[in-house]
């Protein structure tokens, strides 16, 4: 198993898990308005299924919020 930080919370995933697997693991059903960065590098949506995670990776999953 690998440990990945998703939005600053530790998650345990199967070895070989992808970005797509991680998003599904945290239960974000509506994925239409999500942006993802892996270790502070943007991952386009069409690469989520092909991008494998490694132990101690940091994944940020973001949504639109208000801003000034």
């Amino acid at each position: 198993m690998i440990q990945v930080s998703i939005n600053n919370e530790k998650q345990t995933l199967e070895p070989g898990a992808t970005v797509q697997d991680a998003i599904e693991a945290i239960g974000l059903a509506d994925q239409s308005m999500l942006g993802v960065a892996l270790n502070m590098t943007f991952v386009p949506k069409d690469k989520w299924e092909k991008t494998c995670l490694n132990d101690n990776d940091q994944l940020d999953v973001l949504r639109p919020v208000s801003g000034g």
């Binding site: 600053n8 239960g27 509506d30 308005m33 973001l62 949504r63 639109p64 919020v65 208000s66």
Partner: peptide
């Protein structure tokens, strides 16, 4: 309009409503 991105926990639906 300006807006932003932030981490969104699965439990909160605020992001979708805001959008």
């Amino acid at each position: 309009i300006t807006l932003s991105l932030r981490r969104q926990s699965p439990a909160k639906k605020g992001g979708e409503q805001f959008w």
